[in-house]
Design a protein around this nucleic acid. Structure first.
Length: 128
DNA sequence: CGGTCGGCCCGCC
DNA sequence: CGGCGGGCCGACC
């Protein structure tokens, strides 16, 4: 399991960097074959109501994180259907076993949190 | 189901 | 400092 300290190799100085670190840390932990919404990632990172920031960070970061596992609260890829980005994200998700119904993912089935690893995350955060 | 409307809050002019 | 818009969200029609 990834230890928290490994994700913080570069200690954040500003609040912005801190937020970014926390968000990327949560995204990194989303289990393969699961998805999580922007808003949920924000909440888990301790940044409620910052869904848009999650999007901004995923767009700009160069860090290798499983960005494809973040979708909107309706279980849909945010990129326009037909765009390269949309196809790319969908292909990555399908490759890890996530099924689509039309353009939608059933969050009750593939939403992160129904597989136990989320409990580990919360436990880790509580220990800090 | 799809469309709109605020609300959100920071990042970037 | 003031405005604007974003890989969003929930409520509502």
């Amino acid at each position: 399991m990834l230890h928290l300290s490994t994700a913080m190799v570069q200690r954040p100085k500003t609040r912005e960097q801190d937020s970014q670190g926390r968000i990327l840390e949560v995204v990194r932990r989303i289990t393969k074959g699961r998805v999580c919404s922007y808003g949920e990632v924000a909440r888990l990172a301790g940044l409620p109501r910052r869904a848009r920031l999650v999007g901004t960070i995923l767009k700009t970061t160069t860090a290798r994180v499983p960005w494809q596992r973040v979708v909107n609260a309706q279980g849909r890829i945010v990129f326009p259907i037909g765009s390269d980005a949309h196809r790319r994200q969908r292909a990555l998700l399908e490759r890890e076993g996530v099924q689509f119904i039309g353009a939608r993912i059933d969050l009750n089935r593939y939403g992160w949190g129904s597989d136990g690893s989320l409990d580990e995350l919360l436990w880790d955060f509580r220990k800090r």
